[in-house]
Design a binder for these strands. Sequence first.
DNA 1: TGACCGGTTGACTGACCAGTCAATCTGTCC
DNA 2: GGACAGATTGACTGGTCAGTCAACCGGTCA
Lengths: 213, 213
Amino acid sequence: MARANAVPAVDKRRLILDAAVRVFAGQGFHTCRVSDIADEAGVAYGLVYHYFDSKDQILDTLFLERWDILLRAIQEVDAQPIPAREKLYAITSFIVDSYRHDPDLMKVIIVEVTRAANTFGRTHLAHIREAYIGIAAIVESAQREGVFRGDITPDFAALAFYGAVEQVLTGWIFALLPTGELEYEQAKTHIVETICGGLDRTEQSALAAGRAD
Amino acid sequence: MARANAVPAVDKRRLILDAAVRVFAGQGFHTCRVSDIADEAGVAYGLVYHYFDSKDQILDTLFLERWDILLRAIQEVDAQPIPAREKLYAITSFIVDSYRHDPDLMKVIIVEVTRAANTFGRTHLAHIREAYIGIAAIVESAQREGVFRGDITPDFAALAFYGAVEQVLTGWIFALLPTGELEYEQAKTHIVETICGGLDRTEQSALAAGRAD
DNA sequence: TGACCGGTTGACTGACCAGTCAATCTGTCC
DNA sequence: GGACAGATTGACTGGTCAGTCAACCGGTCA
């Protein structure tokens, strides 16, 4: 009671953003109407345009909010004094946990932005690219240290790595791959194992497989 | 003059499909109008609806035509008595060469269908999935033979492999990666090397890198 | 010659929906 | 209490296009 003036009791802007996540995840950005978002948020149509300039801007906001967190996470991981493989594991872990924590939001970001190469993917290309660059930097130093092979360019390795991660998330989103706590944890290891260790049977992988056999 | 009746001199249907590829690649499916396709084909608006039921059906046709060729290629590759790594190389090679031969068509298929998870990607999910299944089958037999490690599920490996390939194509499409004859050939090797051999430095990879250093 | 038919034309319609705006409501401050 | 400001409402408008349709064209066949 003491004070509730400047800031409204409920942040309608946030309410709209959260509703948009559910609507975008459920129907897709292009299929839904702005009125669907307003209805889902329990708010009048016009209020959406009080807080946002356009339907596009809602998605832009959702994407940028989350992607900046990812970029910061990548930077922080890279700053740590740990082996490259562990850095890649930490990044994979962050992305997988993001999905576990808020599958709808990650679905929207991947399906409507990251993979939507012709619409929002193009708008945010520079931003998305920063993630690739961060990953490539990790690969590059590992190559300089002689831990990673030097014949595959860092840019290329970064794309392959990110592509694998995104495809697995897409697999979960569209039920091509089983989901669950165990699957999420295994996926982290398996993605890094595949990209770093490769599918070929080696002594270490034979050892690792031994536990499963 | 002898005969030109039943079949028209120029196949207008094909003309429209080819025009659609250029228009979709240039502006994107959702951005372009049906009249753009008609104009590009040098044909009246209504004729498009003589040959196709809807704008969607044009894209469906383009995708299915090409994807079936890919699926057949995967099957043929798998039938050959060669090591798994060579099979994966052959598939990668087929996809890369498809892009080299007709970048516009591959761009449309990837950007508008394969990666468009909420629209056409969903419609053709079962079809797209068949490619994953074909790749997973290759991985599975390699695991049974003890050539590939057994602790990563074939489904998972297939997604990671296909994800890497598609991401590299996307990299070319959006100029994130340099293009050219040399790059295409190197990409084939590097994708397979990354997924099968891994990024870690090993004796073989050190050997391969030796040539480049 | 004239009936017939598939191919071809492009003006038109009907539906849809993003974004606008004038009115109303709620709370604050003097 | 009354003036002011920001939040909130939802009916309405303007523009866009996918898809329709009636007419036309050119070749074939009886």
